[in-house]
């Protein structure tokens, strides 16, 4: 059944490695991504690595879809023996609680923890950028401690400040832009996640490792 290759119109192919999301499957997607970058094919414009799939966009007037598909297949087969990958590690300083993280108290209450313990557990993990999407620069981070899982807000905020760090269900992430949003906000970073005026445009890339670091001193409320 898997891996599956499916056309998405005349200009794209979707490779589904699996229908599940496991850290191992996601790591294979990112290893494939690195391998594709090192072994590019003429006519292929760009590709979008996701949790367990890879969407490849090409110019059908420059390359046949069958050629793209066999290239992708070769890449996938070769990468299995070559899974070592050099992930970039990014440390993100976060102001937890207070007006930067108005929902920290709720996340603590919901999980029967103290706010300080929520911060300790949130900063203890090393996260992995499973994929990017939603808005430019938004990274879906894998690896949240399951004791911090909290449902989304019942009614989303109309305006979440850029840099806000939030939790939604079993996911955690950072808002790159000021936007509406329904995640529980536990803190905020001063780092810029997306800057269209200056290269590198994005702080994070798919496959990166992320560690949060608390910059608060003293209490979190």
């Amino acid at each position: 059944m898997f891996p599956k290759f499916n056309p998405v119109g005349e200009s794209a192919v979707l490779l589904e490695i699996d229908e599940e999301l496991t850290p191992a499957i996601n790591r294979r997607v990112h290893a494939l991504d690195s391998y594709m970058q090192a072994n590019s094919l003429r006519g292929v414009r760009e590709w979008v690595p996701a949790y367990s799939s890879m969407l490849v966009i090409f110019d059908p007037l420059l390359v046949e879809i069958s050629k793209v598909q066999s290239w992708l297949k070769d890449c996938l087969e070769n990468v299995l023996d070559n899974e070592a990958q050099k992930a970039k590690k990014v440390v993100i300083p976060v102001h937890y609680g207070g007006e930067n993280g108005p929902d920290l108290a709720y996340v603590a209450f919901y999980n029967h923890l103290s706010p300080g313990e929520v911060v300790r557990r949130h900063t203890a993990q090393t996260y992995h950028v499973g994929m990017m999407g939603f808005t430019p620069g938004f990274a879906y981070l894998l690896g949240l401690d399951s004791s911090l899982e909290t449902p989304r807000l019942k009614s989303p905020r109309t305006l979440v400040p850029a840099g806000s760090v939030g939790i939604a269900g079993g996911q955690t992430g950072i808002y790159p832009l000021e936007s509406p949003g329904g995640w529980q906000l536990i803190g905020r970073t001063d780092m810029t996640l997306f800057d269209p005026d200056q290269s590198p445009f994005f702080l994070l890339a798919p496959g990166d490792e992320v560690q949060f670091h608390a910059v608060n001193t003293g209490a979190f409320l």
Binding site: R45, E46, M132, P136, G137, F194, F202, P206
Partner: peptide, 8 residues
């Protein structure tokens, strides 16, 4: 082109 992987 080239930034869809970053959500753009």
């Amino acid at each position: 082109f080239g930034f869809m992987r970053f959500g753009l």
